[in-house]
Amino acid sequence: MKVLVKRNSAFQEFEVPRYPSQTVLDVVTYIQRVLDPTLAYRFACRVGMCGSCAMTVNGVARWTCRTHVDKVVKSDQMEIAPLRNLPVIRDLVTDMREFFDKWAKAKGQFSGSLTKKEDFQKVKPDSPKRVAVDAGIECIGCAVCYSSCDVVAQNPEYLGPAALNRAWTLVKDERDSITIERLRAVAGDAGCHSCHTHMSCTEHCPKQISPTAAIAGLKREVSMALFRKIL
């Protein structure tokens, strides 16, 4: 199989043997270990938990450790590039700081009001709020959604689908104590109101999360806060 790997804005060609159940990460690892040890890429768990191995495969952002070559290669050629919308450090490694800094800007940290001296708050697993949290909580921070988002490409200040999805899971968390501050952080031109509902994030999320639904929920919550004059 011919594999084109993007390095320093140009594609370098490699010939990689095909194996049954071969993943895209297997292909990149083969190139680095057998053909060219200078190739830089990032991975850790190899089982779809850590979110570190995402790359652009044939033009689509994917988690490479769980993407089988058979699924993405129609002819006998594959193109691998770093994630879009993030600065490239080297070869297939992107700088994720901007991505995670935006989680912090969206107030993505949990903030409860109880101390360890009090009994823990009981949350019913089947309550509507908890169900909404569960729908978005399994994000692994792979940045596939961020890379697939055209609004991020056009507006560098935009917080992006992952950070907004994280904020949504906290807004719906009954234990959350800074909901209004969080809504202020995610509203406006850099936040949920810039989303055009293209749904690229939802289509490409490897965990089948819908950041689009989370962002729509944030828009609703912000509108309600506006009407109640508490924003």
Binding site: R184, A187, G188, D189, G191, V222, L226
Partner: peptide, 12 residues
């Protein structure tokens, strides 16, 4: 323009 004004514009 502050965030509240931006949210009002979106709603409008």
């Amino acid at each position: 323009m502050n965030v509240r004004a931006q949210a009002i514009l979106w709603t409008a």
